[in-house]
Simulated assay, not measured.
Amino acid sequence: MKGLSTPSAQGVAFALLAYGTWGGFPLFFALFDGVGALEILAHRVIWSCLFLALVISLLKRWSVIANIRQAPRQLLPALACALLIGANWGLYIYSVETHRVLQASLGYFMTPLVNVALGVVVLKERVAPTQRLAIGLALGAIVLQLFQLGTLPWLSLCLAVSFGTYGLLRKQLALDGLSGLFIETLLLLPLALLLIQQLPVSHFDGALFFTAPYSAALLMASGVLTALPLLAFAGAARRLTLGTLGFLMYINPTLQFLIALWVFNEPLAVEQLTTFVLIWIALALYSWSSLRQQRRVPT
């Protein structure tokens, strides 16, 4: 345990736990048999909300949640964040259900570049020429796939844009990760309950918890697995520099990429591989440029 005595070592351990869990999500969602993506999404919201309420009670953090009532203007961006993260969760579950984990991996590889692009377009941020080149390479990769395969990687784009926009709006909320996610799931809770009522088969029904206990247990676990890596990520963010945290972030889509190839045996066409290689080059340029900028800024 001596190796984890320093804050930086603890931060790396927390980051590995968070990104490793997120990267292994395809294996978890592949366990669901006969449960549709919409039902999994609804249950993920319900059980996440309940589990987060328990965690907030144990940590005695309800005062933070109560403060948002004094700032009703925060509810509109919170609702937008909730809808975006809900859409992202649903698309991700759909990608696993339809055996498109490679597309999901590409989407999360693209997310940092989407963040930079949104910063330039929306926040009018200035970025280094190398970072602009990285964005250009990513756009070129998408256009190349469009010409080579005749279709846009819409699933990858939707995942990247939804999560990137979520991050942009989330910065406007004066809430930590735990409280913010609870507010978001709380806002999504009525929609999730309404969706459950409309589905022909639901494991939320008490009787079905006894007739299909395996699926029911997995649905409940989805809420816990939503919150735990977030708590680990919050611990990592407090202990690591932004550059280290950003570099370790690529563990998530890399694991998804390897799982798609080695576990799910998804085909990887040459055109798709070309897109991935261009995105990887763009990420390398972006990371290198970000590290150079950080070294110039005093700690």
Rank of each mutant, 00 (worst) to 15 (best):
G167D: 06
P77I: 06
L123V: 10
A141N: 11
L248W: 09
W280Q: 03
G24Q: 06
P253Y: 05
V201L: 12
A232Y: 07
C158H: 10
F182C: 03
F233N: 08
A232S: 15
L193V: 12
A284W: 10
F276D: 02
V101G: 07
L83I: 14
S202V: 00
W280V: 03
I56W: 00
L291M: 14
A236I: 01
D176S: 11
V224R: 02
M1H: 14
I196K: 08
S95I: 02
A78G: 09
S5N: 15
S95D: 08
L283H: 06
C81E: 11
N252H: 09
L102H: 02
M110V: 07
S8C: 09
Q294P: 04
L59P: 00
L186P: 05
Q148G: 09
A174C: 11
V121L: 12
T226Q: 01
L38Y: 05
N265Q: 15
R126Q: 12
L27M: 11
Y94T: 15
S215F: 06
L146Y: 15
G3L: 14
T6R: 14
L118C: 08
V161I: 13
L230Q: 10
L106I: 07
W288E: 11
I259D: 03
L218V: 00
T226S: 08
L118F: 07
L230M: 08
W262L: 13
A138W: 02
S179K: 01
A192C: 01
G164Y: 14
I93R: 06
S48G: 05
S290W: 04
L31D: 05
A87N: 11
L181V: 09
G23V: 03
L189V: 06
L285H: 03
L240F: 00
L187P: 04
H99I: 04
V116I: 14
L261M: 14
G34E: 05
Y108A: 07
A237H: 13
L102P: 08
L188V: 02
C158V: 10
P213F: 00
V277P: 01
I135C: 12
V201R: 12
L144E: 12
L133E: 07
T6S: 15
H203Y: 13
R239L: 07
F210I: 05
N67T: 12
A53D: 04
G11D: 09
F14I: 06
G167S: 11
N115I: 01
T21A: 14
S48W: 01
W47D: 00
T6C: 09
Q172G: 15
Q10W: 04
F109D: 11
L199A: 08
G177T: 13
R73N: 12
A141W: 14
L50P: 03
N67D: 13
L219E: 06
I85Q: 10
A104F: 01
A9V: 08
L230P: 02
I251P: 02
V114N: 04
A30Q: 13
L278A: 12
L168Q: 04
A282F: 00
R126D: 11
I281P: 01
A232D: 08
L188K: 01
A237G: 06
R292W: 11
G34C: 09
V96N: 05
L155R: 08
L38E: 07
F29M: 05
I65H: 05
V127W: 12
W47G: 03
A66M: 06
V297K: 14
L194C: 09
N88Y: 02
F182A: 11
S105A: 15
L123S: 15
V116S: 07
F14S: 13
I68W: 09
H203W: 07
W47H: 01
S8P: 04
A216D: 01
A260F: 06
P153R: 02
